[in-house]
Amino acid sequence: MALRTRLTETLGIDHPVLSAPMDVVADAKLVRAVSAAGGFGILGGGYGNRAWLAQETAKLAGLRQPFGIGFITWSLAKQPELLDIALAAKPAAIMLSFGDPARFAPDIKQEGARLICQVQDEAMAGQALMAGADILIAQGTEAGGHGALRTTLDIVPAVVDLAAGRVPVVAAGGLADGRGLAAMLTLGADGVLLGTRFYASQEAAGADEAKRRICAAKSGETVRGIIFDLSRNNVWPAPFTGRCLINDHARRWMGREVELLQQVERVSADYMKARTEGNFEVAAVIAGEAVGLIHDIPPAGEIVARIVGEAEQILAGRSNSSRLPRNGTKE
């Protein structure tokens, strides 16, 4: 059975699987690999490094498959001209997260790109729909990186109900395999967006040690809070906090955030040094609760194929089981 949804139709893709626009980690190489496999790769525009964005969008020139470019909305507002660089690359969609998209929606639509908005509650979803969002991503707190407090199991059906069929809804947060895709489709979502699973892929631009740590981590070995934001002197607006793997630095400062803030200059210097040196007992590995489901570092295309194949089998089995009589024997 083919997993054709409103999402695949809207974006012109084969499979309802999107890779998250992880800052720096989701570079052109990862985007190309995911899109070539029939998914939808999204370049990680992140906080807006002009040189990096120009470099990576140039590498996407000539890509036949649809792809997207994602930004942190409140950060893009400080450098709105970066949207012009992104739109010049002719993406099929621009993804905006963490802030009101209304300022940027007209320019995105005028260039013929779809507007994807990631939201964490119904108020944000309503705001995105008012701005003209073509696709909503309902992000649960299990997601790696920045997010809020609603769980994926809670926020996805809530946003599906709010959207009421007007636009496709994509689920994000704690998902890494075909079981997650099948479950979210059953909840009414039209696809999934995955970050941590694609971080641990051969094409992702993350450090090898970070990928190894994701594979070694067990369920429950991540933490959400403000420690790594304070440590890099980059405090986010409420209600957004960050999730990463637990390490020595997180253990040291959990419950002592006020003290960390008082020592932020020294801590920030040490933290940036650790990032440069690849010391991930201090520097954060941005990862979500899906780490317990991730045990290898395959090509991104293989990840897409695995997830879709497993979901197809699960949903086909569910369909077959629904035709069984109550005594468990086939009719």
Rank of each mutant, 00 (worst) to 15 (best):
I72L: 05
E142P: 08
R306A: 15
A182N: 04
K109Q: 12
H295C: 04
G44R: 07
A300M: 07
K78E: 13
Y47F: 15
V264H: 10
N49D: 15
F71I: 11
A2M: 02
P91V: 05
G145Y: 07
A217P: 03
V282F: 06
E310A: 09
G44T: 03
L60F: 05
M22I: 07
G39F: 13
R251M: 09
R6L: 04
L129Q: 01
R251N: 12
A143H: 02
D229C: 02
A105W: 06
A171S: 12
A20R: 00
K109M: 03
R6C: 04
G292E: 06
L3N: 06
A250L: 14
G70E: 03
A86T: 03
A189W: 12
G38C: 12
V291Q: 00
R326K: 00
E331K: 09
R150G: 02
A183P: 04
V264M: 15
P237Q: 13
M1L: 13
K211C: 05
L245I: 13
A123T: 06
G309S: 15
Q139G: 12
S322K: 15
H146Q: 04
Y271P: 09
V170M: 05
A54T: 04
A171C: 15
L185K: 04
W253N: 09
G48W: 08
G174N: 10
L129F: 08
G45F: 04
A93W: 00
A163N: 00
A26M: 02
L3S: 06
A189P: 07
I227F: 03
G68L: 02
G99Q: 13
N279H: 10
V159S: 05
H15I: 01
P106E: 08
R232S: 12
V264P: 00
C215I: 05
K78A: 14
R64E: 15
I246D: 13
E257W: 03
R32W: 02
G48H: 12
P168W: 12
D190C: 10
M184A: 14
A189C: 07
P66V: 03
L181Q: 01
A54G: 14
V267M: 09
G317P: 00
A77F: 12
M184Q: 11
Q202N: 06
I246M: 12
R326C: 03
S321H: 13
A77L: 12
L136W: 05
T57C: 08
E81W: 13
P80R: 14
K218C: 06
I42N: 08
E122G: 10
E277W: 04
G44L: 10
A61M: 02
V156C: 06
A172Q: 09
N234I: 02
A158G: 02
N49S: 15
P101G: 06
L315G: 14
E277Y: 01
P168V: 02
